Simulated assay, not measured.
Amino acid sequence: MALWGKILGALFGLALLRLPGLLVGLLLGHLFDIKMAANLARFRGLFQEQDDQQELFMYSTFATMGHIAKATGVVTTGHIRQARHFMDQLGLNERQQQEAQAAFRDGKASNFPLMAQLQEFYQHYRRQADVLQYFIEIQLGIANADGPMSNEQYLLLQQVAQQLAISRLQLEQLLAAHRAQQRFNQRDSKKPAANAVQDAYKVLGVSAACSEKELKRAYRKLMAQHHPDKLMAKGVPAAMLDVAKRRTQEILAAYELLKNR
């Protein structure tokens, strides 16, 4: 049973208005819990093979994507295209895509309680650091879907990361790796330029001066973090695993380029 809406609502209400605020906050939190339960129940009927934890992952993913896309006040065609591309990558059928789009619309609402939603998500996955990082990596895709992210989106990403106990430094490293990966994917594989090599180092999170041993260690760590079987065992929905597979292929491509130099 979802309780985080009631808990957070009561605490905020108590801090602002003491006992009357506690009662009002408890009521509002209860209404939030009912809404979240209804949203997850909607997903439960469509993703019957998943448990509650995986349904929470799916709903939180698309709702957060919607909130980040709307951070500047306008959802662009680039954001919509990226969201649809991600849904296609997951192999969702038409009905499932409609529900993912509904979660995306929920997140776009200005009054969507994103922090409370993320807190519930964090409580379920707080012991799975790789899953929390994977969640952030997914959100970077929507934030950079329409060119360089806006300052509003960057600030919102910082809040998302903070709710998931991901440091500012970790977020910056993930962002640098994501941008390098985008450039690396656009390289000419037959004639890799010097900047493609530099991007490959950034994809693996190491410097160009690293040793062969350090390079291999970084590669193995990233492959382990994104291994589909390990992510599934930690509660990532099966529908998300194709994306993880593509990520491991990208990591392998960067490593192969550097290993053969």
Rank of each mutant, 00 (worst) to 15 (best):
44 R>K: 13
124 H>G: 03
256 E>N: 14
197 V>G: 05
214 E>Y: 08
178 H>T: 00
139 Q>G: 12
74 V>P: 00
72 T>A: 10
104 F>T: 05
203 V>P: 11
136 I>W: 15
192 P>T: 02
158 Q>V: 09
170 Q>F: 03
211 S>T: 14
75 V>Q: 00
231 L>D: 06
224 A>Q: 14
16 L>G: 03
211 S>K: 10
180 A>I: 02
242 D>M: 14
18 R>Y: 06
37 A>L: 09
15 A>M: 11
162 Q>C: 02
172 E>C: 00
130 D>V: 03
238 A>G: 03
19 L>S: 05
47 F>K: 02
245 K>N: 08
86 F>C: 01
66 G>N: 08
89 Q>P: 02
199 D>W: 14
131 V>A: 08
30 H>N: 09
108 K>V: 06
36 M>G: 02
58 M>S: 13
170 Q>N: 07
83 A>E: 01
167 S>D: 01
237 P>Y: 07
127 R>D: 01
84 R>A: 06
95 R>F: 15
254 A>K: 03
217 R>S: 08
106 D>A: 13
10 A>N: 01
153 Q>T: 06
78 G>F: 05
43 F>G: 04
3 L>H: 04
37 A>M: 08
106 D>M: 12
92 L>M: 06
203 V>M: 13
182 Q>F: 03
28 L>F: 14
34 I>R: 14
258 L>T: 06
19 L>A: 06
86 F>T: 01
102 A>W: 15
145 A>Q: 08
53 Q>G: 03
172 E>F: 03
215 L>I: 03
64 T>K: 12
84 R>D: 04
238 A>M: 03
72 T>K: 11
187 R>T: 07
142 I>H: 10
113 P>R: 05
183 R>N: 15
197 V>W: 11
52 D>A: 03
117 Q>P: 01
110 S>Y: 15
163 Q>P: 00
154 Y>M: 05
214 E>S: 12
161 A>S: 13
189 S>T: 00
77 T>M: 11
31 L>E: 11
170 Q>S: 09
55 E>D: 10
224 A>R: 14
215 L>Q: 06
87 M>D: 01
157 L>M: 13
132 L>C: 11
80 I>H: 08
45 G>W: 10
204 L>S: 10
20 P>C: 07
25 G>Y: 14
216 K>R: 15
246 R>D: 13
136 I>A: 15
37 A>H: 09
258 L>P: 09
211 S>P: 10
28 L>A: 10
131 V>R: 10
103 A>E: 01
137 E>M: 14
169 L>H: 13
110 S>P: 07
249 Q>N: 14
47 F>I: 00
155 L>I: 05
255 Y>C: 02
221 K>N: 15
228 P>S: 04
103 A>G: 04
41 A>E: 09
224 A>N: 12
181 Q>M: 12
17 L>G: 09
